[in-house]
């Protein structure tokens, strides 16, 4: 067993003064990470799964030496993140803010050349390396154009190439596919897999359960700053003794009628967990909001019972889908919420 990341009781509290009136100030404490401990083994793809605001970015920043923990210890490749940041930085790399981590006024090539120099790579060596990366990530069509003319996907690719420049032993990716279209996201997942096959350990954060499921050797579920579960995706899914869940989309429901409906569904004998989230479409107009209800079942499902309940509550069903058990259900069963929910206000 060779852990590349060892985390022991890491805690992070943000302290912020907030203005109350003209002169009064109030100290607000936000506990972003609460006593977290786990290890990541060498050579695997490790995913940190959690809704927005769970503390994923905070943890990744502590591990990449950009933020100091309030308490606890973390070691990367055997080095302490607080005391030996300089040594760690040589061997890792990361893609954190995606397209905003590169210079828009430079071309893709100039960006890579510049960052190579920051990793002490001589210009000639850098050229060979950039050519190889260009081939691998298919950058040649746009690499000599200024970044400000790129599409999101192209910017992402350059940022990604940047994080591979120093042949890192360990690479951190913060929500790598969040801003990409499905095709580009699929491409990125392929690259991540390929990179891992070549021996790089990958630590990624995501709130996309399918991505975590598809890529990871091991998954940690982070919620409200705490690790809830950590295991292989298969084992996590096995913990839930069912094989299916149903997802029902309905139009936006008012709070009162929602509570009534949920308690009605909960009373059905085959329902083990239920959660909902309000989904806002594109431009955020109220009329286009909908409510997503996810029900995990423990036994044989009786769909008509469920549909009857909706009719009884006079709530029309937009769509109904049966899905295989996924990490979303694991998250649901542990927290009673969906991953798509933003928890940043609860922390």
């Amino acid at each position: 067993m060779n852990p590349v990341i060892e985390i022991e009781n890491i805690e992070k509290i943000y302290r912020k003064k907030s203005r109350k009136g003209l002169f009064k100030r109030e100290l607000i404490e936000v506990r972003a990470l609460d006593n977290i401990s786990f290890n990541v083994e060498e050579g695997i793809i490790f995913s940190l799964l959690g809704p927005n605001g769970a503390g994923k970015t905070t943890l990744i920043k502590i591990l990449t030496t950009l933020l100091l923990p309030t308490a606890g210890k973390a070691r990367i490749l055997g080095y302490d993140v607080v005391k030996e940041g300089g040594k760690i930085r040589k061997h890792i790399n990361a893609m954190l803010m995606g397209e905003r981590s590169i210079y828009w006024k430079l071309t893709g090539y100039q960006n890579l050349e510049y960052f190579a120099s920051l990793y002490h790579i001589p210009r000639k060596v850098a050229k060979v390396k950039i050519d190889k990366l260009s081939e691998k990530l298919d950058l040649s069509d746009f690499i000599n154009r200024k970044v400000e003319t790129y599409s999101s996907g192209q910017k992402f690719k350059i940022a990604f190439a940047k994080s591979l420049l120093n042949d890192p032993k360990l690479i951190f990716l913060d929500e790598p596919t969040a801003t990409l279209d499905p095709r580009a996201a699929r491409e990125v997942r392929e690259i991540i897999k390929q990179l891992n096959d070549e021996g790089t350990t990958i630590f990624l954060t995501t709130h996309n359960m399918n991505e975590a499921d598809e890529l990871s050797d091991e998954v940690a579920i982070l919620d409200l700053g705490k690790i809830i579960e950590i295991d292989t995706p298969e084992n996590l899914k096995e913990q839930i003794h069912t094989s299916e869940s149903i997802v029902i989309d309905v139009p936006f429901i008012e709070l009162r009628s929602k509570d009534k409906l949920l308690s009605d569904i909960r009373s059905l004998s085959f329902v083990s967990d239920i959660a909902y989230s309000q989904v806002v479409n594109g431009n955020g107009n109220k009329g286009e909001e909908k409510t997503k209800i996810r029900i995990t079942t423990s036994k044989e499902i009786n769909l008509s019972n469920i549909v009857n309940l909706f009719e009884k509550n006079s709530i029309p069903i937009l769509s109904i889908n049966q899905e295989k058990i996924s990490l979303e259900d694991v998250f649901l069963s542990k927290t009673g919420r969906l991953l798509s929910e933003d928890t940043s206000k609860r922390v």
Partner: peptide, 18 residues
């Protein structure tokens, strides 16, 4: 503000050489 400070400080390059 442009978001590149983190990338810069994450590299092993010494501040004085930058």
């Amino acid at each position: 503000m442009t978001g590149t400070l983190e990338t810069l400080l994450m590299s092993p390059a010494k501040r004085y050489s930058i």
